[in-house]
């Protein structure tokens, strides 16, 4: 049995706004295992970024964790519930950067434009460890080389604007990894990059993960990327987790109609070009006007009146590590792809 490093259970996050309360997360549960990569997949509005931000207690205002727990197990086996910690408190400050590193989508927004990149990578090191500057600088140069930044000594004094998008993302990764965190939370880290650069960054994350025995929580909307790097997959839709399984099951034996439809709507190389893509009808519901019952039912091809539109379905374990939130699972659903 794999060791669990984070257990998220029934997490609810609300954003009270003028027009009402947006339930960004409506009872989200999943596990992150030690040394494994878990991908959180979903379309816009599914709550995947909010999940990532909750892990670090950096929700944007007016978001707040309404209930649920995020139980983090540290190096000594001590368990901390991140969900109940004050965002600016001592415990969170000790976890952020040290225990959990984070990489965001757009590298330019996570870097300061007026500080040299070397100094920026060094900052968490000086915060979390008692190190002399010279020693810290050595560690930074080492990390820069490790993430594939050419000529670290010269690049140390560069500003972010002097670097390409791919190199900036490497700087952000170096910053996230400099304290050797046990968990890396990466929110769409390759979405703004070219495919060629994306491939290199994915390789890098994979390599560093193996070297450092780190867990990775990788947020993406790209199913191709999921297939490339995930061990486990959490599929989210409109604030709920609809399916969790290992990557092979997700792609080859998915149970939830949304997961299946999502997989079929991706254009694939070598598919029959004369057939239209299997699009999902309709669109993601507005967060303030979500349908009753199962949130996916208006778009679902397995929709059953009287069942799907009345009560929210329970999450069922179809296998020990394969959970599906669908009332129709087990009811003669035809074999998936």
């Amino acid at each position: 049995m794999d060791e669990t490093i984070v257990e998220v259970r029934d997490l609810r996050v609300d954003f009270p706004v003028m027009a009402g309360t947006i339930e960004a997360l409506r009872g989200v549960s999943f596990l992150l295992k030690r040394g494994k990569t878990t991908c959180i997949v979903g379309e816009s509005g599914s709550g995947k970024s909010v999940t990532a931000r909750s892990m670090m207690q950096i929700l944007q205002k007016p978001g707040r964790i309404a209930s649920g727990s995020i139980r983090y197990r540290d190096r000594d086996g001590k368990i901390t519930d991140i969900a109940t910690q004050p965002a600016g408190g001592r415990v969170m400050r000790a976890i952020r950067g040290r225990e959990i590193g984070m990489v965001f989508q757009e590298p330019m927004t996570s870097l300061s434009p007026v500080h040299r990149i070397g100094e920026q990578i060094m900052e968490p090191l000086l915060l979390h460890f008692r190190l002399q500057r010279a020693e810290a600088r050595e560690r930074v140069l080492e990390m820069m080389a490790r993430v594939g930044i050419p000529n670290p000594v010269q690049r140390f004094d560069n500003y972010p604007f002097q670097l390409s998008g791919g190199l900036r993302q490497r700087v952000v990764i170096a910053m996230a990894l400099i304290c050797e965190p046990r968990l890396l939370v990466a929110d769409e880290p390759t979405t703004a990059l070219d495919v060629t650069t994306q491939a290199n960054i994915l390789d890098l994350i994979r390599e560093l993960q193996e070297e450092m025995e780190m867990s990775v929580m990788f947020i993406t909307h790209d199913l191709g990327v999921v297939a490339e790097i995930a061990d486990d997959v959490v599929v989210m839709y409109a604030g709920s987790v609809v399916e969790t399984a290992d990557v092979d099951t997700t792609f080859h034996a998915p149970e939830h109609p949304y997961t299946r439809a999502l997989l079929q709507s991706v254009p694939r190389l070598s598919a029959d070009k004369d057939l239209p893509l299997a699009a999902i009808r309709g669109m993601v519901p507005h967060p303030l006007a979500r349908p009753r019952g199962c949130v996916f039912h208006p778009r679902c091809d397995r929709y059953l009146a009287g069942t799907c539109d009345t009560a929210e379905p329970a999450t069922i374990a179809v296998l020990p590590e394969h959970h599906v939130k669908c009332a129709r699972v087990g009811q003669d659903i035809t074999q998936g792809r």
């Binding site: 495919v195 060629t196 994306q198 191709g224 490339e228 092979d248 997700t250």
Partner: peptide, 12 residues
């Protein structure tokens, strides 16, 4: 090289 970098939506 460009074709080789495209992620394939099949973990196998």
């Amino acid at each position: 090289a460009l074709l080789s970098a495209v992620p394939i939506p099949d973990p196998r």
